[in-house]
Design a binder for these strands. Sequence first.
DNA 1: CTCGCCAGAATATGATCAAAATTCACCGTG
DNA 2: CACGGTGAATTTTGATCATATTCTGGCGAG
Lengths: 219, 219
Amino acid sequence: MQVKTAKLPDHEKVYRRLREMILFGELTPGQAVTIQGLVDTLGVGMTPVREAIRRLTSEGALVFQGNRRVTVPVLDVSEWDEIAFARLAVEPEVSRRAVENMAPDDITRLVAMDDQLNAAIDRGDVRGYLEHNYRFHAALYELSGAQVLLSIANMLWLRGGPSLRVVLGRYGTANLPDKHAEALAGMRAGDGDAVAEAIRGDILQGIDQVRASLLGEKV
Amino acid sequence: MQVKTAKLPDHEKVYRRLREMILFGELTPGQAVTIQGLVDTLGVGMTPVREAIRRLTSEGALVFQGNRRVTVPVLDVSEWDEIAFARLAVEPEVSRRAVENMAPDDITRLVAMDDQLNAAIDRGDVRGYLEHNYRFHAALYELSGAQVLLSIANMLWLRGGPSLRVVLGRYGTANLPDKHAEALAGMRAGDGDAVAEAIRGDILQGIDQVRASLLGEKV
DNA sequence: CTCGCCAGAATATGATCAAAATTCACCGTG
DNA sequence: CACGGTGAATTTTGATCATATTCTGGCGAG
């Protein structure tokens, strides 16, 4: 989803930066997100910040509180289950479609990403895990060309990002969901169903781990 | 999703108005949406218009063209199929959940909505059909309380709204998908599966009709 | 005819300010 | 102690302007 303009508008830069802060847990569940706060943190003007906030609230990545304040979403187990349901519906399907469009270079690129991910896991780097895991999935799904389903997947990852970071912060990178090797094997075989099934298993594993942590509380 | 403030901010008013313009086809596929155009049409200031546009682009209801211009989405058959896939994944599920939360008053309200819908169909009122059909589905799904899935459903309806209006404009209200009677029967019986199945059938019927129209062209 | 260039018009973006709305801290009262 | 009121501080909202970017139409050259 490359913007064709030579120069990125500030609102787009803010959007992307803020999006990553949410995905990878720099912003924590329940945290207030103020315009002036972001102006100070990111060193940009108020207008682009406002516009980026609007975009992210529409994606569920930030939440209107009804008193004009905006916070990072806090998830309870039922919301997590909804995210899980939707991810299981959408992500295996975009994975299957991605395989149909896949070139050898794509697989090579994905393998390199998975290596980075595995290195992050080995060194116990939670932030690195979150980022590399996201990038692996995002790169795979982008290959599907299915823009509508992609926007759903992205929205789901954004909604779950901060809470996932909290949970992982407790348990570290041991026993993290990782069926990427199976997915990559399926890609090499050009077997969309195998890839979809591996992604499905990856998601299920991750869902169960976080769900157990969310039971009885909201993160 | 009630905003608790006593006075709706202008950006929220614009958002809601623009959203309806998209859902019910006042804005047509490919149409450029300019800030100043909306300022003139809606009689509000530039800032709330800009913020509303940002929100709607994040929902896919409006599309960045990459040259800073924003237009109403144009759908081809593959995008319609994606919308169909996601709707079939999500909407029966939220319908099932809605039944679990349903009170007799809710059913009474939905019946009244369906009556309005049937009246619109009888008088060949395409705009009325679109609005009343949307309101029936939205009211049903809202009962689920499943905010994440609801936001997906809303996004999907927004993306398809303008193109659906074009297609219906060609064929009128004859033979429109309508399995609402079956859905209402399921609700009265407290049978979530039956409601889910009726909604599923309703969606499938509508999908097929629009798909046939989109084949070979984009709307 | 096509293509490229240019100027002006149209549009988007960001800055910045004032007004409106909400929150917070403090004080007084029961 | 709890609660309510008040004023200040903080934050959001909308206005409005200047600047940056893109589009469009006309003109000239090949």
